[in-house]
Design a protein around this nucleic acid. Structure first.
Lengths: 296, 296
DNA sequence: TCCCTTGATAGGGTTTCGCTATCGAAAGGT
DNA sequence: ACCTTTCGATAGCGAAACCCTATCAAGGGA
């Protein structure tokens, strides 16, 4: 039963029988049969059938909620028993927005010594991807924006508020003093792509200051942005946390961007489950500790 | 997996492999094997083994919590899908303290017309049995005292507060005016057995009034008490709600017992699950409606 | 129209499941 | 101390479930 629910979740996520089957490590006929059996057992149709996947029925949507919960709890049970057997261990899967990637090392810092058997898998994703992945139990927790969440059953731990700096090659004229958003009109910029929430935040600040920008370079990678800044006269806008790792040497400079001090809170997002699994509980604890440290 | 968790719950409840097996409709070797497999899969010992059942290990206790939740959610999923298929239907299992039995008909009243396919199974139990049964998912809801709950994951809906009356055969000298707890010294009484919470409440009131009683008749059944009162000079103490059904004829009389107006709240107790199953949601709704009606 | 993608179906080997029968250990009574 | 009873584990076997490979039919796109 639980395996079938896992397959059902995979199907809803992949929206494709074949891919879902691969993701579950079974063949497509096996997954098809599992869904059919699930429908028989529950006595309702869960998936709109044509010659291809056409989405979930309303009952399927409802069943998906329960399936996520049941599967999540079953995993929690297994994990908790493993912890009882061999202490905190296993793989903790995180997804993180690009501009918060440097924060992960603070999260994992104490962890490695205290719990040497816990591994981390960190992937860089957009904030909306992260929320989906938390829902689908593809990751154990996400590190992303907490502001604009139309999200249900999740636990959040705020860690810090983003503040923005302008980053440019040393000697860039704007580096001499503080910069306001309005000063950026006409400045050649490279920025994250518009599907990233960070870029949308920056866009909003710029447009509130009536500045239009058309970045020559857009990327999903902070490294790409910085390396362009390093080798050209372009500048970029980054959260302090994302920029400071590049500011160790003399080649780059940064100045705070002053203006409407809209704080965009970044923190941990985890599926809400009571009680939390031991590993997740430890991670949330650690996140709270970090949050207090950087209280300023 | 889920079936094994069900067997595990049954074992924890029955504390006996054979009985648990019978309760699950399987043979004892099947249940033994299921528990063993569960232990293998989780990698921990769940049950203290000797030549007989010796209780759960700490891990077993923890696993039991998860098992209850997972099994409960799985049932909720199945029920909700059935409701989607054929509307509110199925069997709603209630357990009720003896003194609240007459309230059940108010709960079921509107239900029968609105949802003709919902059946009710009502059993009379002690309040502590009811709490256990709610935990073990043996019943869908209980009707019992809400005061002294050292209880965790349950939802409660208060319905009414008990007030007590002295019930006796017409002509009994105490029926002439209101009675105080202190007036009951030396009065021949028949009462519920001391394992019932109602009796303990009455004992408490009596002892606060420094009255000692040694009832000649004790029973778990209100009907036994009343029929004794009817055919002898004994009196009994009952909540109004439990007594009034017997006061229709001229043979019995009742007077309120005045004194410290300690209110003992009676209401519905159901396993807390989010969201509630449709049938349970309807029942809780109905309970709230009743509670408002009798607001006085 | 042809071709490719997608999901359903058929057939078969392996695994799991749950039963009956039986055993060994421990508890309880005499 | 001995016998009996209770309780859970083990062995062996037939039935069911599971999951694979191979194949088919229906749509959609060029």
């Amino acid at each position: 039963m639980i395996d079938k629910l896992e397959m059902f979740i995979a199907l809803a996520r992949e929206e494709h029988f074949g891919r879902a089957a691969t993701a579950q490590g079974v063949t497509q006929p096996t997954l098809s049969a599992a869904i059919k059996q699930l429908e028989d057992q529950l006595g309702v149709m869960l998936v709109w059938r044509g010659s291809r996947y056409r989405g979930l029925t309303p009952e399927g949507q409802r069943a998906l909620d329960w399936a996520r919960r049941i599967v999540g709890d079953a995993r929690a049970l297994r994990q908790e028993m493993r912890v009882a057997r061999e202490g905190l261990s296993g793989d903790l899967r995180l997804a993180v927005i690009p501009t918060a990637l440097t924060v992960v090392s603070e999260l994992t810092a104490g962890f490695g010594e205290a719990h040497p058997n816990v591994r981390f898998t960190v992937q860089s994703k957009t904030s909306s991807d992260i929320l989906k992945m938390v829902e689908n139990l593809e990751i154990d927790a996400g590190l992303t924006y907490l502001d604009n969440e139309p999200l249900g059953r999740v636990t959040t731990v705020p860690i810090y508020s983003e503040r923005y700096v302008l980053v440019a090659r040393s000697g860039h004229p704007l580096l001499d003093g503080p910069v306001a958003w309005g000063d950026l009109a006409g400045v050649p910029l490279c920025l994250l792509t518009p599907d990233m929430q960070n870029r949308r935040i920056i866009n909003q600040h710029l447009s509130e200051a009536s500045v239009e920008v058309a970045p020559q370079i857009e990327s999903t990678s902070v490294i790409v942005l910085v390396s362009h800044v390093l080798h050209s006269d372009w500048a970029t806008i980054l959260p302090v946390r994302a920029a400071e790792i590049f500011l160790k040497g003399p080649d780059l400079g940064a100045v705070p961007i002053v203006g409407p001090d809209a704080r965009h809170v970044v923190g941990l997002v985890a599926p809400h489950r009571e009680p939390f699994t031991p590993v997740l509980a430890a991670l949330l604890e650690r996140a709270k500790a970090i949050a207090i440290e950087r209280e300023d």
